[in-house]
């Protein structure tokens, strides 16, 4: 049976191509990536081969409602083994970028981005100062945490970036007291 794509399905595929999945149409569904993808080994429904197939079939809603894309380990095995040079991981990133613009984003992703904006670090666990001190290191690493003027400059860069356009959280410049 032929699959008839609607204009919306076609627009979705175009969006995936524009956002980084340029070579998606080169995929022949050979399954090399599926054999090596941690998502498939761990039993996620939409591992990379199926994601690509689902995008091509216009299954936008099914993909967006499933958490598989956010569980991808970014391991790049798929890129390494793909005989068609689809760069499957880049298709997955493009899909995440499309999901972000529908505000279909897991809470921990937003938290990571918020941490990145506030501190310069996406991972920012509590109690680290005591851990660092215990092994003889300075309480703060030599990052933007130790250089407030550089943090301000980094935040200015982020405010000018696509992150602000996407609007996952407010990114206002803090008033100087």
């Amino acid at each position: 049976m032929a699959i008839i794509l609607s204009e919306m399905d076609k627009a979705f595929i175009s969006e995936i191509k524009e956002r980084g999945g340029f070579d998606i149409h080169a995929c022949v569904q050979c399954g090399k990536c599926a054999a090596t993808c941690p998502l498939s080994l761990a039993g996620f429904p939409f591992y990379i081969k199926k994601l690509i197939h689902a995008i091509e079939c216009g299954m936008r809603e099914e993909i967006m409602e499933d958490s598989s894309m956010w569980a991808c380990q970014s391991c790049n095995r798929c890129v390494e083994v793909c005989p068609q040079d689809v760069k499957p991981y880049e298709v997955l990133l493009a899909l995440r970028r499309a999901a972000v613009r529908e505000l279909s984003v897991p809470g921990n992703t937003i938290e990571g981005l918020r941490n990145l904006y506030k501190t310069g670090h996406a991972v920012y666990p509590k109690g680290y100062q005591a851990r660092r001190k215990a092994v003889g290191l300075s309480e703060e690493p030599p990052s933007t945490l130790s250089f407030p003027e550089m943090l301000e400059q980094f935040q200015e860069f982020l405010r000018n970036s696509e992150l602000n356009e996407v609007g996952l959280f407010p990114m206002k410049k803090e008033e100087k007291k």
Binding site: H121, P142, S143
Partner: peptide, 11 residues
């Protein structure tokens, strides 16, 4: 000095 996150793949 002044380094930040790499940034991580989920960000």
């Amino acid at each position: 000095d002044g380094q930040t996150c790499c940034p991580a793949f989920g960000t």
